Each structure stands twice: as structure tokens, then as C-alpha cells.
Simulated scan of single mutants.
Amino acid sequence: MSQRARSALSAVLIVLACLLAPAGALASWATYEIGDGGRYEAVTAPLATDPAVREAIAAATTDGIMREVEVTPRLRSPVRSFVHSAVRSFTRTPAFHVAWDTANQAAYDAVMRALRDDDERTVTLDVAPVAAQVKRQLTADHVPFAHRIPVGHAEITVLRSAELARLRKGFHVLEIAGFWLPAVTVALAVAGVLVAVCRRRAVVATGLGTALGAALLAVAVAVGRRMTLSGLPADVSHAAAGAIYDTLTGTLRTVSWLLLAFGLALALGALLTERIARLRRVSAGPAPVPAEEPTRVRA
């Protein structure tokens, strides 16, 4: 194979590897973090302490309770304020963490079933267990008529049916590519470097391309956050949705920064080794021969 053909083949392989690197990171994240129930639960458990999430849960639970409580219009506002304060206080207790973990796991199972099956129903998070816990707390505190509070279904929409078809196709592709895409990416990068005429330059190109792909991945995560929040209904807490999005994509953002640092370090390392090798070749060369002094002719 001629040097020109080797250079062209190396360039194609390296470009493909750099393009697939962010896609491989995204596929691995979807498969091994979002698609794994245990890891998902570990990642989202701290959301129970997030102020925005607690406030959203308190508002949804209060709305659910007030829909079931029959009070006169004059008393509705103070009763709602009292119930909301009680629910908000409850969200700071260990019992709320247990209720959150239970409801969150149930919502996760429902989302996974919807993505992996053909269920087109809207996925919701039932916060009725929180309402039941609040009712027991108010009753224990001897709040008048607290024992008469009916506990119905108080739901928060997690995934609308209109979004399921699009997300299901993308999730299936990511699950399949979760293992093979990173392996193919590494294989293409290694092959591109080995085929190259100048391997150091190929390593520099691979590092810079990987860093560029990682930067694009970080930008895509940020743009996805903005698009997700802008598409939410008015009755959905944007602060809570933003906190959940940031928690779920935290690993993906970390991976993008690690890939960026790795790519830049790889390119810089190749440039430095080339510089060092050049200096060594110069210093190891033969010593210059001193010029002979011209012979002086006496008159």
C-alpha cells in the first residue's frame, strides 16, 4: 500500500473513531446507568434532599389532598396553607426518604416497561404514599379532622404518551450500542494510528478529535437540558425538572470532561515526545569538524 493510501485510510479511521466516541459515551451511559435499576436508584436517591424536588412533591401532595377534602370556600385557603406546611415539614423526615425511594423505584419500573414494551400510557409518579404518611403524622399530632383526610391518587407526570414512541426507538438503539460502540471506537482509533505513515501525527489527530467530540457531547447535554425544560407544561416545576435532569446526566457530563482531558493530554503527549525525540537526534549527531586555519605564507 502506498503512503498516500495509508494516510487516507488512517484519516478515515480516525475521523470515524472521533465521531463515534461521544455516541459511545452516550450509549454506555444509557445502558449501564439509566438502564440499570440499582445504579439508577443510587443516583436518584439524593434527590429526596433537593429543595426543588421536595417543594414539587409538597405541592403535588397538597393538591391531591385538597381535591379530596371538603371545606367551605372561606376555609379553603388557610386549610391549604396548613396542609402544605405540614407536607413540607414531612419532606424533611427520614420517613419521606423511604416513601420517595418506593415511589421513585415504581416510576422507574413503569418507565422501563414503557420503553421496552409497547405500552403507550402516560407514565406517572404516584405520591399517594407521601399523602398517607402526612395523614398519619397529622393524626399523631392531634390535628382536628386529620383522620378524615381521604388518601387518593396524587400523581406527577413523568413521561407523556406522545413522547414514548420517539424515546423508545432511541433507547433501543442505545441499549444495543452500549457495549459494541465503545469497543468499535477504540478499535478504529488504534487501527488508524497503526496504519498511519506518521504515527505521532495520527495520535495528535486522534487526541484532538476526541477532545472535540467530548466538547460537542457536553454542549449537547446542555442544549438537551434547555430543550427539556422549555417543553414542559406550565404546571410542572422547572426547578425540580432541572434538578432531576442534572442528576441523571451528571455521569454523562463527567465522562465528557474526562474525554476532553484525555484527548488533549494524548495530543499534548504526542507533541512533547516528538519534540524530545527531535532534540535527542540533534544532540546525538556527529560533532562538527573544526575548520583548518589557513597556512600563512611568509614574505
Rank of each mutant, 00 (worst) to 15 (best):
E163V: 10
R199I: 07
T157Q: 06
E163R: 11
W180P: 03
E175V: 07
P182E: 13
Q137V: 14
E155A: 13
I176L: 15
H147T: 00
R166V: 11
V203N: 07
A154P: 08
R148A: 03
V204N: 05
R166Y: 01
V190E: 05
A183E: 00
A187G: 04
H172E: 05
A202R: 10
A215T: 03
T210F: 14
V195Q: 14
A214Y: 10
H142P: 00
L174E: 10
F179I: 04
A183F: 06
G152W: 08
I176T: 07
V184Q: 02
V190K: 08
R160Q: 13
A191M: 06
G170A: 07
I176G: 05
R160W: 09
K135R: 13
R200M: 11
T210S: 14
T206P: 03
V195D: 02
A187L: 15
A154G: 06
F171I: 02
E163S: 09
A140Q: 07
A211M: 08
E175G: 00
L167T: 15
H172V: 04
V193C: 10
E155F: 04
H172T: 10
P144T: 03
L159N: 02
T139Y: 01
T206V: 13
V203W: 09
L159A: 11
I149N: 00
V204R: 05
P182F: 05
P150S: 02
T157I: 11
L194Q: 11
V204Y: 05
H147R: 00
V143I: 13
T206M: 05
G170M: 10
V143T: 06
A154T: 03
F179K: 10
P182S: 12
L188K: 14
S161E: 15
L164P: 06
A183C: 04
V193H: 09
V197L: 05
E175Q: 15
R148V: 04
R168S: 03
A187S: 11
A177M: 02
T206F: 06
W180M: 04
E163K: 10
R160D: 06
H147C: 00
A202T: 06
A211K: 10
S161V: 01
A154L: 02
A140T: 06
V186G: 06
K169S: 09
L138Y: 07
F179T: 04
L164D: 03
I149R: 02
L164F: 14
T157V: 15
V143P: 03
P182Y: 10
V197Q: 01
A211F: 09
I176Y: 02
R199V: 00
A191D: 08
V203A: 14
A177K: 11
H172P: 00
R136Q: 13
C198A: 14
A211Y: 04
A162I: 11
L159V: 14
G207R: 05
F179R: 11
V173M: 07
W180G: 09
A165V: 08
R201C: 12
A146H: 00
A177S: 02
C198I: 10
V195C: 09
V197M: 07
L138M: 15
A211P: 04
L208D: 02
I176F: 06
V195N: 09
H172R: 13
A165F: 10
H147K: 01
G178H: 07
Q137S: 12
R136W: 08
A183D: 07
A215H: 01
H142G: 00
P144H: 04
T210N: 11
T210L: 15
L138V: 05
V186S: 00
L208I: 15
L212D: 01
